[in-house]
């Protein structure tokens, strides 16, 4: 990755000038100075409470028994896999339309975290499916569309690193991120559009949840914990990328000086 995020500029427009406020790597570093510890503490506390509650105090399901406890990690992984990709698509738009320099950097760092989260969603789903459905995997619409999402993440990572010129990699990956976002509604509505083995959503924004509060509360706390953890990881990685870029810039400035001295 190059350090050219410090050299690119946002085009002049109302939206461009608004976004310019958030395009400064120095400002991001100042923001992350308090945001990163805050997200880390929220993640650690919420995950400790949520996981202990989910594993030991939440009731077992009358039909699924104790295996329902996999839900407390599987559902957050599934939601974060989709939201992470949505964030990639938003970064793609910011990069292609406004040439937001931090958007490229964020996309580079969100990709691997999102890919791991999606792999965990598939793995925990498989581990839940085996005792419940009697199989590790079925080519069901929900499972297949999440597998496609995993390949989209891998494609995004591969595209970014496929070019000698980083800017070309960022553009190509941004186009893939935007085009791949079509998979997100397919994942969401796959259980309604097709007759799937995967159960319909238990939580929805438009209707009351179909699970008891004693299960919903630890699930909600785990969701907060994993989301804060995801945020903390991305912020820490973007921080590191900015500092690495600055170090590279200092190194390249030093080289001409050394040549001149020689």
């Amino acid at each position: 990755m190059s350090g050219d995020i410090f050299l690119t500029a946002l085009p002049n427009s109302a939206a461009g000038s608004f976004l310019h406020r958030f395009a400064n790597p120095g400002r991001f570093l100042r923001l992350s100075r308090w945001l990163l510890p805050l997200l880390t503490v929220v993640a650690l506390v919420a995950l400790a409470v949520g996981i202990v509650w989910g594993l030991w105090f939440a009731p077992a399901d009358w039909q699924q028994g104790d295996s329902v406890r996999i839900m407390y990690i599987h559902v957050p992984m599934a939601i974060l896999a989709s939201s992470g990709y949505l964030a990639l698509a938003v970064c793609g738009v910011l990069s292609l339309v406004w040439r937001h320099p931090l958007a490229d950097l964020a996309a580079v760092e969100i990709g691997p975290v999102g890919a791991v989260v999606t792999a965990m969603c598939l793995a925990t789903g498989s581990l839940w499916g085996k005792p419940m459905w009697g199989t590790w995997w079925v080519w069901d619409a929900r499972l297949t569309s999440v597998l496609v999402l995993f390949f989209l993440y891998l494609g995004h990572i591969a595209l970014i690193h496929a070019f000698d010129e980083p800017q070309r990699g960022y553009r190509a990956a941004a186009v893939l991120a935007i085009a791949g976002a079509v998979d997100l509604p397919i994942i969401k509505y796959s259980v309604n559009w097709w007759n799937t083995l995967h159960q319909p959503d238990s939580i929805s924004l438009t209707s009351a949840p179909t699970m008891s509060t004693s299960m919903l509360a630890p699930l909600f706390i785990c969701m907060i914990g994993f989301s804060a953890g995801f945020g903390a990881l991305v912020v820490a990685r973007v921080d590191a990328a900015i500092l690495e870029g600055r170090a590279r810039q200092l190194m390249t400035r030093r080289l001409p000086d050394q040549e001149r001295a020689a």
Partner: peptide, 14 residues
């Protein structure tokens, strides 16, 4: 708890 290995593997992995 017959599903313990599946639960332990899920939590361990994540």
């Amino acid at each position: 708890m017959t599903h313990l290995p599946y639960i332990a593997a899920s939590y361990g992995l994540v």
